[in-house]
Amino acid sequence: MAQASGGHVQIVEVGARDGLQNEKAVITTADKVALLTRLIDAGARRLEVASFVNPARVPQMADGEAVIAALPDRPDVSYIGLVLNKRGVLRALETREGGRRGVDEAGCVLVASDSFGQRNQGQTIAEGLRENREMLRLAREGGLVPQVTISAAFGCPFEGLVPAERIASLAAEMADAGAVEIALADTIGVGVPAQVEDLFGRVREAAPGVRLRAHFHNTRGTGIANAWAAVRAGVAVLDSSLGGLGGCPFAPRATGNISTEDLVYMLDRSGVEHGLDLDALIAINHWFEPLIGRPLPSMLGKAGGWSGAPAAA
């Protein structure tokens, strides 16, 4: 059932991981830590901070452990590490050894098509299901929050439309494997609001009681509309990236995530609480632009916010 405006949405900030992984200019460890610290100061309480993947394939993430070791030890903040296989989970667990804080959540990934899965992770769907069951078990037994993202849920760059029935079935299997949160990711930015409402409705029926999260890319300009459709469909957790940075290295013509600033503006104007400070986010956007070496895609970074109040005389 659609929800009216109001309520609360949790925003997961993915800029330091998904936002940067496709960037050619290497961002230093110190600048990544500064970015994450500023985002926490702006109100972010769940953040993707690194991915435990092969650094030869994703060089930008080669310093993941160093970034994590330098993060502030905030009990009110949850740090997420992306993991694609059991080795990734073990690396995530190693960040917690010796009494260190480390990461708090294992962000597992299950790709919803064989073609993309083989290019992204070297796995078919069936192989991904088996691997994710083991990953979720290792995460849970090691004290990490076990959550999973179903990637390419709204469409595959090689196979086209992914059947909704398949997504619902995969979600049910991941719920059975112990995932406490399931995200549906529009990895290549092809989804539209009607599809969002339909797919999340099916997944809610297939995996009752599991928290649902939405991850949208703005490749075709529908990302913010899709985020609002997810909110209206009762999804209470949304991913976004500072400045709209991002893109999958293994998806053709992939572009950025929905912008955190743009999402916050929409939620603010719609009466939905989220806990982030828009002015602070815009300031971080402007601080980070010189490090990237180009303007960020975010609309709010260019236009600024708007309160609705009359302009001063």
Results as ranks from 00 to 15, higher is better:
P72W: 13
R45F: 00
M61P: 03
P55A: 06
V49K: 01
D73T: 11
A50C: 14
A50R: 04
R74W: 03
V49M: 03
A50Q: 13
A69L: 08
L47I: 15
D73W: 08
R74Q: 12
A70Y: 00
P55C: 10
A56P: 01
L71I: 08
A44T: 07
L47R: 00
A69C: 10
R74N: 11
M61R: 07
A62K: 15
D63F: 05
D73L: 04
A56H: 11
R57S: 14
P72I: 08
V58I: 15
R46D: 12
R45L: 02
R45V: 06
R57I: 03
A42V: 05
E48Y: 13
L71G: 00
A42K: 08
D63C: 08
R46Y: 13
Q60P: 10
F52L: 12
N54H: 14
A44L: 10
A69E: 11
P55N: 07
F52N: 07
P55H: 09
R45E: 00
E65H: 07
L47F: 09
I68D: 02
D73K: 13
A44Q: 08
L47A: 15
V53T: 02
R57P: 01
E65T: 11
E65L: 02
R46H: 13
A66Y: 02
A69M: 02
G64V: 09
F52H: 06
Q60L: 13
N54E: 10
V58F: 06
V67R: 01
N54P: 03
R46K: 14
L71N: 04
R74G: 07
L71V: 09
R46L: 13
A70G: 02
A70L: 14
P72G: 05
A62W: 09
G43A: 06
V58K: 01
A42D: 11
S51R: 14
P72D: 09
D73P: 02
F52V: 03
D63T: 13
V53I: 07
I68H: 00
P75K: 03
A42L: 05
S51L: 11
V49C: 04
F52D: 04
R57E: 11
R46C: 06
V58D: 00
G43E: 06
V53K: 07
P59A: 11
L47E: 05
P59Q: 11
R45P: 03
V53A: 09
N54A: 13
E65F: 02
S51H: 14
R57H: 13
V49H: 03
G64P: 02
P55I: 05
A66W: 03
V58G: 00
A62V: 15
A56S: 12
P55M: 06
A62D: 10
A44G: 00
A44E: 04
R46F: 11
N54G: 09
A66I: 10
M61Y: 12
R74V: 04
R74K: 08
V67Q: 02
E48W: 15
I68C: 04
L47V: 14
P59T: 08
F52S: 07
G64F: 05
L71T: 08
R57W: 15
V58H: 05
A62S: 14
E48N: 05
A56I: 01
A66F: 04
A66K: 12
R74P: 06
N54C: 08
P55E: 10
A70W: 03
V53N: 08
A70C: 09
A66Q: 15
A70F: 01
P55D: 04
F52R: 05
V67I: 15
P55L: 08
R46W: 15
R45D: 04
Q60S: 11
V67D: 00
